[in-house]
Design a protein around this nucleic acid. Structure first.
Length: 808
DNA sequence: AGCACGCCGACT
DNA sequence: GTCGGCGTGCTC
């Protein structure tokens, strides 16, 4: 039998299946979807078996070297999905397959020194064996570091003459945690007999044995826990092991990141009539095995999650599985608890806060069928379930569902692929659906499922707009308007909590010379550096470059360097000055990069240990604190003027999300939105909680400017250290596209992108707008093959992003 | 990716 | 005359 294998070498020349003979001994074991080690050229590589067949067109096939998995890690569906991804997202097959699996399963290649004929080698160099023994089974890199020069000469000779060989070992980075445990393989009767025969003086040993007599005999208990629980000493255990009564072994331990939190179990809540209307057709599809995409448009607090939970319950009862996608920043313990509360240990959770090993363990629970629900961020859409019954994407409009590196897939598209494959419903939920999805719902491609009233009948919070231009005119130069400031004070007196939102971290966005207007920029990225007060340094938010704050203008030597723009650090500082008694928690990338910091800060705020929560994006979602009655948006227009056709949409969504954080429970909520353009429809409509109005206006703008959902986009970015090469290649690409695509396709550029240089590489872009280009993928592929010369090391990089979300 | 094969300059 | 530069092509 022959296996088709996709080899782990991420270049286009090897991006095709290679045939290998399956050795006799593996014949009954090997299945498509398993990882194997294959000889490739003169070394060994990991590969994925994607197909098994009887014959090959080639002769002289090599044999598969060994198997890595005992069970397939990819189902047939996922193998197919990988092929589809590589076609539609223009990526390599191996890249697609790797994206579906946890990072711990990526191959690791290590070289080891193996001695072929130890005796003969010893005869030849008598002094060699002692040091070679020390290096036996050591990684080659380690040997090179440790060995002396004389030793290296001998090793080299031994390698040349064939006494020793370098062997490549292929494995992955998965480490299952093993814990030293004790137990017994004897029966209860045998143990009792042994107990009676034990020396009367061996009190502790008898005690230990009694422990095992009184419990399930096949159960192994971690040694450390046993010692602690029984108070028996290590030595007593050892004598029992020596007597053959107890057995020590390393038991594989599943890391359960949520084992320490106690989660209250919850019962399904009664649904409102509106909720039932939404749930009904979804349940019908589950029962009747139908694929359909639902867009659940529900205002904040309308009970979307309860609908998800009850739909999943139906899926589980049918013996099928459910995937729930949640944006990374909304994947808070609160969110996880809602699912664990309803389905208990039937839930696996996948998010970036887990360690590599923890993610791997969660993945294995899925692959072994030990859970039937997975809650996770984008990549959880690849969960290797075999009987998928529903896929739910919460906060459907979130741009983080699009992966910004190869494979550049959108989780929504993958979800729909899987929904079709399994004939099961896909539910997209959002209070502020993306224009693309809402337009599809309007056209009837998706089923619109509206939820326009709140479950608890709480009115949406009242929104106050503040025109910051007028504040400035009336002499208020601070970042807080009079209204916001007095309301903050008011909450402080009442002991209620406030949330302040500013979408910019750091202290000041840029530092400028007042005399000559020079702005300090990153020397590698052509973007202004952000001032971080605490370290007194300037940082680049794109490449991480840092430098000291200059005390003179580098251009004109003037001493008048001033900070412009406001970041969360500066707001924090202002708060401590203006409201010294207020306790403030600041949440942004800079305060939450340590593991667990995110949860701890939120918990502290939830426990009432602070009066004001100040933060960026990450506090806009999922927070649900009963005592929060005021939400302040410091600069509503900070995103509005970004060079992105989605700027209005993002502003509307963010404002609506943030406003939804106030008054979610008994206390009434209030929102203050500060802005310099309070008449912009994105801000006005967000203030009125009016999605429909915003949708109408924004669709009009999109049609006029020929953007999605009226047109599709593809963005081609070329980068290289040499600016002229970049421009030249991009121009050629643009010309080529014009020639090959239909007349209806609009090719914009080449132009320099908003950030013309990142990490010392110049960038140039070309945008394609189109409605129907059946040949597009092929043309794009030709472009990439033609211009991205893989052979030279300083090659042009051609990045093709179909349906881009990041336009820089 | 990594390695072999292959065709042109400065060296024992 | 050869050693070695890295351009081209192949790996089941």
């Amino acid at each position: 039998m022959i296996a088709e294998v996709i080899v782990d070498i991420p270049v286009k020349q090897t991006d095709k299946p290679f045939d290998y003979k399956i050795p006799e001994s593996f014949l009954s074991l090997i299945q498509p979807g398993m990882r194997v080690v294959v000889p490739f050229g003169n070394r060994k590589r990991l590969g994925f078996v994607i197909r098994i067949k009887k014959e090959s067109e080639l002769t002289n096939l090599k044999e598969i070297d060994s198997m890595i998995d005992h069970e397939p890690v990819l189902t047939n569906e996922l193998i197919e999905l990988g092929g589809w991804l590589s076609k539609t997202a223009l990526c390599l097959k191996i890249t697609a397959y790797q994206a579906m699996l946890p990072a711990a399963m990526k191959a690791s290649y290590k070289k080891y020194l193996r001695i072929v004929h130890p005796e003969e080698l010893h005869e030849r160099w008598p002094e060699s064996l002692s040091f070679l023994n020390g290096y036996y089974n050591k990684e080659w890199g380690q040997i090179l570091k440790k060995a002396t020069e004389d030793e290296l000469i001998i090793i080299q000779k031994a390698l040349q003459e064939g006494w020793a060989v370098l062997e490549q070992a292929v494995g992955d980075q998965s480490t299952s945690k093993r814990i030293k445990s004790i137990g017994t393989e004897l029966s209860k009767a045998e143990l009792e007999k042994a107990y009676d025969q034990l020396d009367q003086r061996a009190k502790k040993q008898r005690e230990a044995l009694a422990y095992f007599i009184n419990q399930d005999q096949r159960h192994f208990i971690p040694l450390a826990r046993f010692l602690e629980e029984t108070g028996v000493g290590r030595s007593s255990v050892k004598s029992l092991i020596d007597k053959g009564l107890l057995l020590e072994k390393d038991v594989e331990q599943f890391r359960d990141p949520y084992s320490h939190s106690d989660i209250k179990s919850t019962e399904p809540l009664p649904l409102t009539i509106e909720q039932q209307k939404v749930l009904e057709p979804i349940v019908r599809d589950i029962e009747e095995h139908q694929h359909q995409v639902y867009l659940c448009h529900g205002v904040t607090g309308s009970g979307k999650t309860e609908i998800y939970l009850q739909a999943i319950d139906k899926v589980i009862k049918k013996g099928k599985e459910a995937i729930v996608l949640v944006p990374e920043i909304a994947l808070t313990p609160q969110m996880v608890h809602r699912f664990k509360g309803r389905f208990g240990s039937d839930v696996a959770v996948l998010h970036s806060g887990l360690s590599r090993g923890e993610k791997y363990d969660e993945w294995r629970k899925i692959n072994r069928g030990e859970v039937s629900v997975v809650v996770g961020a984008r990549s959880a859409v690849f969960a290797s379930f075999k009987n998928l019954g529903i896929v739910i994407i919460d906060e459907e409009h979130e741009t983080s569902y699009k992966q910004e590196e190869s494979p550049r897939y959108h989780a929504r598209d993958v979800a729909i692929f899987r929904g079709r494959y399994h004939s099961c419903p896909v539910v997209l939920g959002s209070a502020t659906p993306s224009l693309e999805s809402f337009a599809r719902a309007q056209k009837g491609v998706y089923q619109l499922a509206p939820l326009y009233s709140r479950v608890n009948q709480q009115p949406l919070p009242e929104v106050t707009m503040v025109d910051m231009r007028e504040e400035l005119r009336s002499g208020n130069r601070s970042m807080f308007s009079k209204q916001l400031f007095s309301k903050l004070n008011d909450r402080l007196e009442k002991g209620e909590q406030s949330v302040l939102f500013l979408n910019r971290r750091g202290y000041a966005t840029f530092v400028m010379c007042r005399d000559c207007g020079y702005v300090v920029q990153c020397p590698h990225c052509d973007i202004s550096l952000t001032y971080h007060r605490r370290q007194g340094r300037l940082k680049c938010h794109y490449c991480g470059y840092e430098e000291m704050l200059p005390d003179h203008c580098p251009s004109c030597q003037s001493e008048y360097m001033r900070y412009f723009g406001t970041g969360t650090q500066k707001v924090e500082e202002a708060l401590t000055q203006l409201l010294p008694e207020a306790r403030v928690i600041r949440m942004d990338v800079d305060t939450t990069n340590k593991k667990g910091a995110h949860e701890n800060l939120l918990k502290a705020f939830g426990d009432g240990k602070a009066d004001i929560l100040l933060g960026t994006q990450m506090i806009a979602k999922g927070l649900d604190f009963a005592n929060v009655t005021l939400v302040g948006v410091l600069a509503a227009d900070s995103m509005l003027h970004l060079p992105d056709f989605r700027a209005s949409e993002k502003t509307f969504q963010l404002l609506t999300q943030v406003a939804g954080r106030a008054g979610r429970h008994r206390l009434k909520g209030e929102v203050v939105i500060q802005s310099y353009t309070p008449d912009h429809y994105a801000i006005v409509d967000a203030g009125n909680h009016d999605y429909q109005s915003f949708y109408q206006k924004e669709m009009l703008a999109r049609r006029q400017r020929q953007y999605p959902p009226y047109f599709y986009l593809t963005l081609i970015t070329v980068s290289h250290v040499d600016f002229t090469k970049v421009v030249d290649a991009t121009e050629k690409i643009a010309r080529y596209l014009k020639q090959r695509l239909s007349n209806e396709a609009i090719i914009l550029g080449p132009v320099a992108p908003p950030i013309p240089r990142i990490k010392d590489r110049y960038r140039y872009q070309c945008m394609i707008k189109y409605r129907n280009e059946p040949n597009l993928i092929n043309v794009l592929k030709e472009c990439q093959n033609h211009f991205q010369d893989i052979h030279s090391k300083d090659a042009l990089k051609v990045t093709i992003d179909i349906n881009p979300y990041l336009l820089m």
